[in-house]
Design a protein around this nucleic acid. Structure first.
Lengths: 234, 234
DNA sequence: TCAAAAGTGTTGGGATTACACCCATGG
DNA sequence: CCATGGGTGTAATCCCAACACTTTTGA
């Protein structure tokens, strides 16, 4: 870089990233979002999406991954950009634009413990506290995007463990759409994608009879991630 | 704002907007994109999307509207955010992130003249020059978004004049998808949306027989813009 | 009268909805 | 043996793709 840039007429702006991290609590059958208590003024101590300023030497995506990793210990999980929030007065303290990302992760028991370290906690969608700045808007947009994506791409599997059951998958989709779905048709549609491999084992935690374990077919996943599809859940 | 901000640990970054402006040349039956010759180093004189740095006192959306208006004279047209491009090395001169927007406008004869003032020109999709930075990537993403949107929302009408004919609309969709479409099924589907009002007049510029003028129903447009639909064009 | 574009309908097949009962098991 | 959740099938309907000819009119 030049010490005297040709961009010297322009004024730089603070750039932040904020992550809408979704987790599916299989035990509770609830879709949840990770929030933490903001560490800096203004609004210190209030609930916020997990975020950070973007450093000069990292991309916005890297910044998002850094934060995701810091709070969940995870890397190599589903993480996509949502959009940029660029209103002038979105932060009363200074001019800050934020790039929102959203992420889908497995929310297991170790994960629940882990986040406590950072003053973070998992909240049900129906039970979110007031959030700082425009973060409620970000959550709303992220949820809309998740709904849209779930009917076009095999994103749901990112929220489940490697082995899962059809009843679990079914409950997840009901949570995403917050609607009752016909379970027989759901099975037909989801099996018809070819994404699921039935395993020989059963999960007996949910019933006497037990439900078969499934794993998703990674190569088929990649294929459909590219092509896309369109499934309407009723 | 405080003179000493509590964000003083963070380093601000240059923020730009870039616009992918689509216009449909009804006469040529071609979808086109507006480009201009970059005015500043580096890459001065090379073809670029129209863009600008974001000023501290304007939102990213305002910046995008400012640029759109400067080059086309238009306001109050279709303009949506595409996404943020935040790679560290996307601009070799300095750290600059860019928020890309895309816009759909009517490309009539006056418009063609107007842009020449700013060293700008309209290019067919198949005939784009090499673009600076990551602008080719932006165009690619914008086109993918347009295709996606055109099957879910009534966006196509933004590219046509107030009165248009079904053959024109049909040609537009063929341009968007760059595929041959069955014209009878296309008419059925597009008329079934209830978006079109048939006018009594005809446009005889395209044929001896003449094609009926249509206008789109604004209230139905708003309704479907909210609800969305799903049409596959074959 | 003919060239050139506009306009129009039907049918067969595939997909989707709606819907209710049997299965397996542990206690 | 029974309560609980897991798993299964079909018929009726709707939707959609495929497909070719007639109309209008200016030159």
């Amino acid at each position: 870089m030049n010490t005297v840039t040709s961009y010297s007429n322009a004024k730089p702006i603070f750039v932040a990233v904020d992550n809408v991290i979704f987790g599916f609590d299989v035990a509770a059958e609830r879709l949840k979002i990770l929030l933490f208590k903001r560490q800096i003024e203004p609004f210190k101590g209030r609930w916020s999406l997990v975020g950070s300023f973007v450093k000069p030497e990292e991309s916005t995506l890297s910044a998002s991954m850094r934060i995701l990793s810091k709070f969940t210990g995870l890397s190599d999980v589903f993480l996509e950009q949502l959009r940029c929030y660029g209103a002038v007065d979105r932060d009363p303290e200074d001019r800050v634009i934020s790039i929102a990302y959203y992420s889908l992760i497995q929310l297991d028991e170790p994960q629940k413990k882990l986040v406590e370290v950072h003053n973070a906690a998992w909240f049900e969608l129906q039970d979110l506290p007031n959030l700082v700045l425009d973060h409620e808007h970000m959550v709303e947009d992220a949820l809309a995007r998740l709904k849209e994506n779930a009917r076009r791409r095999p994103v749901g599997f990112n929220l489940l463990p490697a082995k899962f059951t059809l009843p679990q998958l079914f409950k997840l989709y009901q949570e995403i759409y917050q609607l009752p779905i016909d379970d027989r048709n759901f099975r037909k549609k989801i099996l018809a994608t070819g994404l699921l491999n039935k395993l020989g084992t059963k999960d007996k935690s949910g019933s006497k009879k037990g439900a078969f374990h499934y794993a998703f077919d990674r190569s088929k996943y990649i294929e459909l991630e590219m092509q896309g599809y369109h499934i309407e859940f009723h």
